[in-house]
Amino acid sequence: MTYRDAVREGIRDAMRTDPRVFLMGEDVGRYGGSYAVSRGLLEEFGPERIRDAPLSESAFVGAGIGAALGGLRPIVEVMTVNFSLLALDQIMNNAATLSHMSGGQVSVPVVIRLATGAGRQLAAQHSHSLEGWYAHIPGLRIAVPSTIDDARFMLAAALACPDPVLLFEHLYLYNMEGDLTPGLERVDLDHAAIRRGGRDVTLITYGWSLHKCLAAAEDLAKEGVEAEVLDLRTLRPLDDAAIMLSVRRTRRAVIVDEGWRSGSLSAEITTRIVEQAFYDLDAPVARVCTVEAPVPYAKHLEDAALPSPARISSAVRAVVTGSGAH
C-alpha cells in the first residue's frame, strides 16, 4: 500500500469506530482530497461527516477547536502547512492555550493534518517546512508519520489524545509504497524509533528526510561507516531519552531537517545534546538543513536547497573523520 492509502485507512478506521470523529477541510469531499487522501470517504460516510469547507482556514480550524470543546473529535485537514498561516491565530492563540488558560477546565482534542515540505517544484509559497515552528508552542503536540505504519496508526493515537495534535504528512511521501508490519495494531505519540541500527554516528531526523538518511546510510555502509538512523516521530515533546541513548552510544550526531537552521528545531536538538551529552561526544554536532533562502522553483536550485543523501553523507564523513576515532 502507499502512504496515502495508509493515511486513508487510518481515517476510515477512526470514522467507523467513533461516531464523534469527522473530517473537515478544503476539497476533502467531492474532490477526494488535494492529495487524494480522502478519496471515497464522502461516498462511505456522507457529507455530514466528510465536510468540504470554504477557503476559510481560520474559520474551519477554529470550528474544529470549537467542535472539540463541544464533545466531538474533529480531524481538520489543512491542505498544506503553508495555508495554516492563515489559521495561526486559532492554532496558537486558542488550540494551544485554552487548557492552560482555563485552569484545566477544558481540553481541545482536535487533530489537524497538514501536508508539509518541498521537493515538487512548487516554489516558496508552497514548499515550507514549518513543523519546527509549531513545535515551539507549548500546548500543542507535533507528530510526523514518516513510515507506512505511522501513516496508518498515528491518527488513532492522536485522536485518543486529549490535547491538540498537529500531524505533518510530507507531500513527497504520499506515493511511497510499503507494507504494514504484520500484527501491528497501534503506535504511540511518545517515542522516537531507531529505523536503522549503527555504531558510528546517529542521524536524527523525521519526514522525507528520514528516507534520505536511510539512503545515505546505505551508501556510507559501503564505506564502512555504520550510521544509526533515529526517526523522531514526535517533535513536541521531543524524545530526549532516545536521542541521548543513541548519541551516547555512537558519540556523534548529525541532525537532518528540511526546516531552515536558524532558530530551528535542529538548533534545539543540538542544544539538548550539548546540555545533556556533551562529554559523551567525540565530534561537534553537525546539521544538514534547507539552505537559508525561500525554496526556489527551478529543479536544480530546489535540489541544491534541500537536504540530500549526498549532503548527508558528506556531513557524516566530516564528523566521522574529523574526530580521528576511525
Partner: peptide, 8 residues
C-alpha cells in the same frame, strides 16, 4: 470560529 465549532 470557536462559537461556530461549538454550534457545529
Amino acid at each position: 470560529p470557536i462559537a461556530v465549532g461549538l454550534a457545529l
